[in-house]
Each structure stands twice: as structure tokens, then as C-alpha cells.
């Protein structure tokens, strides 16, 4: 890898592939098989870019700490992690909403403390703190809906795309916290020293939207 290449962190998986297609459209393809590969690093030394495939929830850390100059991350994760980065562009991919859901017909019992199950611990805490509501937040790794079905929690905070999973499990959305989609983020220092390169990419990507 050339040391002065612009380092781009992409989320491994479907979203990363879509984003890579966008980058190839503006001439930043890397000429190697991007999919179906165990490789995690790809280069285009001519256009001076290198891609790293990282776990979606790790993109923020790579960019914040400057291991990558720019990266693509869901707004939901950005809100949760509060990464200290610049958020330069909404790529309008992977649209969903961060929502609160509960069993259909759920009526809050104001005499008891509310229990909330979620992957988004900070987001849930902040949301209920703004409402002045005392909550116990239970961190789960996945299948969050189940927590409401089995009575582990009164409500859940999770991302909702079509809403099908929520409905199929007998839940309904009771509040929307924020809208999410893929965002192009930049390390704050890289944005200063590689401003021309980064601004050019932002401008070209914006035209493809």
C-alpha cells in the first residue's frame, strides 16, 4: 500500500458492496474482485485510494482514530457511538428508522420502572432521559423483538426498515427516535490535510445521488 493513499473504511457486507459500487462509478474501482474474497484490503495506486473492509460497527473507530481517512457508516451507529468525526454526505442507502416498539396494545405502567431492551444502549438512555423517564436498559446482541414477546422488556429500541419483522412478532412502533441511512464520514485531521482529495470525492459522489 502506498502510504499517501486515501484510506477508506467500508462496512463489510451488503452495504459495503453497494457503497463500493458508488465509489467505482466515480472512477475509484480497485480492479480486484471486491466480493467473494477473504481479502480485507484493496488498492488503486493510480487513483491513490485504499479500501479496508471492517465490521460495520467498527468504521467509526477506524475513522475517529485516523487509521482510515474516511469511511461509510450507518447514522444509527453514529448516533449510538457519538464518534468525533465530520459527517460529510448522506449516501441515502440503507434507509431505516431508529424506533421504539412494544407489544401491540401495550399500555405503560407509570408506577413501575420501564425496562428497555436494545443494541443501542446510549441512544435508548438518551432518548428516555430527554423524556425524563427512568429506565433500565438491557443490552442484547440481536433478535431484540423477542425481549418484548417474552416479557424481558416493556419496550425495545431498534432499527426498523419495512416494519415486517416488528409486525410478524406482534409488535408495533410507538415512537421514532431518528432516521438513519449510510453517511460518509471523515477523520477531522485528515479532512484538514487531505482536504482537496476528500472534497473531490464528496462532490463526485453527491452528483451520483
Amino acid at each position: 500500500m502506498k502510504n499517501n493513499n486515501l484510506k477508506i473504511a467500508l462496512p463489510k457486507g451488503r452495504m459495503g458492496n453497494k457503497v463500493y459500487t458508488m465509489f467505482s462509478k466515480i472512477g475509484l474501482e480497485c480492479g480486484e474482485t471486491f466480493n467473494d474474497s477473504r481479502k480485507l484490503v484493496f488498492h488503486n495506486d493510480e487513483r491513490k485510494v485504499s479500501y479496508f473492509l471492517v465490521k460495520p460497527s467498527d468504521v467509526g473507530i477506524y475513522v475517529e482514530r485516523g487509521a482510515a481517512d474516511i469511511g461509510v457508516i450507518g447514522k444509527d451507529i453514529l448516533i449510538e457511538q457519538q464518534s468525533d468525526v465530520f459527517e460529510l454526505l448522506d449516501l441515502k442507502l440503507g434507509k431505516c428508522s431508529l424506533s421504539v416498539a412494544a407489544l401491540k396494545g401495550y399500555v405503560p405502567d407509570t408506577s413501575k420502572r420501564l425496562t428497555v431492551a436494545t443494541k443501542y444502549v446510549n441512544t435508548a438512555k438518551n432518548y428516555y432521559a430527554c423524556l425524563g423517564q427512568e429506565v433500565e436498559v438491557i443490552k442484547l446482541g440481536g433478535s431484540i423483538e423477542l425481549a418484548a414477546c417474552l416479557g424481558l422488556a416493556n419496550t425495545i429500541v431498534d432499527i426498523v426498515e419495512s416494519g415486517a419483522t416488528i409486525r410478524e412478532n406482534g409488535l408495533e412502533v410507538i415512537a421514532e427516535i431518528a432516521l438513519s441511512s449510510a453517511r460518509l464520514i471523515s477523520n477531522k485531521i485528515s479532512f484538514k490535510f487531505k482536504n482537496r482529495e476528500i472534497t473531490k470525492i464528496v462532490g463526485e459522489l453527491e452528483k451520483t445521488l
Binding site: 475517529e64 482514530r65 477531522k188
Partner: peptide, 9 residues
């Protein structure tokens, strides 16, 4: 102030 070698202010 920033210097190129460091990833924070």
C-alpha cells in the same frame, strides 16, 4: 492546531 502525524487536535 493540528499536525499531520497525529489523529487529534
Amino acid at each position: 492546531g493540528y499536525v499531520k502525524e497525529l489523529s487529534s487536535v
